[in-house]
Design a protein around this nucleic acid. Structure first.
Lengths: 160, 160
DNA sequence: CCGTTGCGTTAGTCCGACTAACGGGATACG
DNA sequence: CGTATCCCGTTAGTCGGACTAACGCAACGG
């Protein structure tokens, strides 16, 4: 099948992580995600961005302006943390925060031209980073991988 | 402007995460891992365990006794955090901490009989949890998934 | 008019990964 | 022999991300 889960395997140099541990999907996932997160965070930090920036900008570009709460829902960022993110984006003039004429208790967030340019740049950066992340896989395998994880994630979000 | 005048896209309910975001492998990974971690942590908590317990016990069972630093290396737990984990394990009489006769500055950790029984139990628990985690995938797909993530992880640990 | 609901915000918890520093014991080397 | 260096166990503390609690305020709905 996979490897030698036979009895008498002399794994001298391999004397590392126990197999039962290494094989567990949950561990593979968290280890890999740690690497992936680091890769992405560092990559984005190099261009003075954070993944939240991308998430919010993408959401604005794709679904148009929205209130903070709505952006929060669309991007998966907690509304508690949204404030800070929007501050960072506003500082950089990537986004404009204005009061909603129709509902004075909320702000409407709009993407700016700079924001749109920024988003294009970040998309490029992320493409490169993902190329690095998925380097060992062939195009077909990358698709497979994305497909499988998508299915898993979907299942667990619906069954939440 | 508000919402209802969407032109041609019938994504009423689907008005959610932007696509470019949703299909990024990095995002899929961190989202999925969050779910997976929660699942596993909660599952283990229900039997008064944590994943570190499993990691250490498995390492002891598979590679025999060792110093704290060595266990740290084998299991990937930071040596700073090892103390706490071993305290928890020792409290429950799953391991024994004794001074190394050959090197008085270090402790030798040994798994106890209770520990061995415990490990078997945890293995069962984890099997069930992984069944839940990978539920939507066929056996073949599960293998595929494990294979792909393993390759990715290996690549990124070697290239670290 | 009042209760409920949603929004923006602040503060703070919890947890995991990771760093810094330290004393003491072990080893290597001059 | 002494000393420099390394390793080990330990404590304390940082950092970032997810998440909760609570509040004030505005709006909507009966």
């Amino acid at each position: 099948m996979s490897r030698a889960d036979a009895v008498d395997v002399p794994d001298d140099g391999a004397r590392r992580t126990p197999d039962r541990l290494r094989r567990r999907a949950s561990r593979l996932l968290s280890q890999l995600t740690m690497r992936s997160d680091r890769l992405v965070n560092e990559g984005l930090a190099r261009v003075d961005a954070r993944k939240w920036h991308y998430a919010v900008l993408a959401s604005l570009q794709e679904h148009g302006p929205g209130s903070q709460a709505e952006l929060s829902r669309r991007s998966g960022i907690y509304r508690s943390d949204m404030v800070g993110v929007l501050n960072e984006l506003a500082e950089r003039d990537l986004v404009e925060r204005g009061p909603d004429p129709e509902d004075r208790r909320r702000n409407v967030i709009t993407i700016s031209d700079r924001g749109r340019r920024r988003l294009r740049r970040l998309d490029k950066v992320l493409d490169d980073l993902h190329d690095e992340l998925l380097a060992p896989l062939s195009p077909a395998e990358r698709d497979q991988f994305v497909q499988l994880t998508t299915r898993l994630l979907d299942h667990h979000t619906r069954t939440s």
